[in-house]
């Protein structure tokens, strides 16, 4: 609409310019403080280690972490470990989201199925998935399959519950409207329930990103011979805190990156 665009494009008055300037300044300040806290923490950490106030063997230090990452990268094993964990996490995430959404759809479609299965979902949701670790190892062995299964298991229940919540929260007035037009259940699903559940879907993606990391790292803790979780456990066992910290730092960066991707998807999908 021309006149909608016009309203936003009017020249700004001096007061408004000042207001905009203030807001920009505030944003810059927040970002500077964020970075400042990180640098301060790293600096203090490095200093404490360098001055031997605490034994760096126990607390490691930023410089030692960087050196460790450099060593791992030099012999190429870093990328094997990152690749392993990333694959497990992404595949588990994708399967949990897809399967969880499908199950939620089925439960939305049939109220009876929903009522029948509700207690199972509640119990599975509150069960700590790690309790199933031994069972999973016996069933799927000690390889990637077991870890993938663990990742899916951790994510799928949350995916189901969130999506079902989104589907059943569809505005009853709009359902009534479609029914009065003679819409079939399939039409109600595709024209109304799915599009109106988009925000719930995005919310579910965000939660499942975190769940997928929990699943894959937990899986690697139980049994693995590669991956960042493996590095952390191995580093702990041989008392190489540098290795533990290095793997943890990489994990932080990867998890933040994946969350940023979902946030980007949210921006693109919910533009309206």
């Amino acid at each position: 609409m021309k006149h909608f665009a016009k309203r936003q494009r009017t020249a700004c008055s001096p007061e408004h310019c000042l207001y905009l300037k203030k807001r920009r300044r505030e944003t810059v300040l927040v970002q500077a403080l964020r970075l400042g806290i990180l640098l301060l923490l790293l600096g203090v950490w490095e200093l404490v280690a360098q001055l031997r106030l605490v034994d760096p063997f126990i607390i490691s230090s930023p410089s030692r972490i960087f050196a460790t990452i450099g060593d791992l990268a030099a012999d190429g094993s870093l990328f094997v470990h990152i690749g392993t964990t990333l694959w497990e996490t992404l595949a588990g995430f994708a399967i949990a989201v897809a399967l969880g959404t499908l199950v939620a759809l089925a439960l939305w479609w049939s109220e009876r199925a929903r009522r029948v299965l509700e207690p199972y979902i509640v119990v599975l949701n509150s069960l700590p998935k790690i309790a199933l670790g031994p069972v999973i190892i016996v069933w799927f062995g000690t390889g990637s399959t077991a870890i993938l299964f663990m990742t899916v298991l951790v994510g799928i229940i949350v995916a189901i519950m969130n999506m079902l919540g989104g589907f059943t929260a569809t505005d009853p007035g709009k359902i009534l409207l479609l029914r009065s037009m003679g819409a079939s259940k399939l039409q109600i699903l595709t024209k109304l329930v799915l599009p109106s559940s988009l925000p719930a879907f995005i919310g579910m993606l965000k939660i499942c990103v975190g769940m997928a990391w929990i699943g894959s790292i937990m899986g690697e803790y139980i049994s693995s011979n590669a991956g960042l979780g493996y590095l952390i456990v191995y580093g702990g066992q041989v008392f190489r805190l540098d290795l533990v910290m290095a793997a943890t730092a990489i994990l932080c960066v990867l998890a933040a990156g994946m969350y940023a991707l979902v946030a980007l998807a949210e921006k693109l999908l919910l533009k309206k």
Binding site: G173, L177, G182, A183, P195
Partner: peptide, 22 residues
């Protein structure tokens, strides 16, 4: 209905075509 129940993710044009699609 009491509320307009227009679908917020559709434009007005897409909203008024809804009964045709259904």
């Amino acid at each position: 209905l009491q509320k307009d129940e227009l679908f917020p993710w559709r434009t007005v044009r897409q909203n008024i075509f809804l009964p045709l699609e259904i």
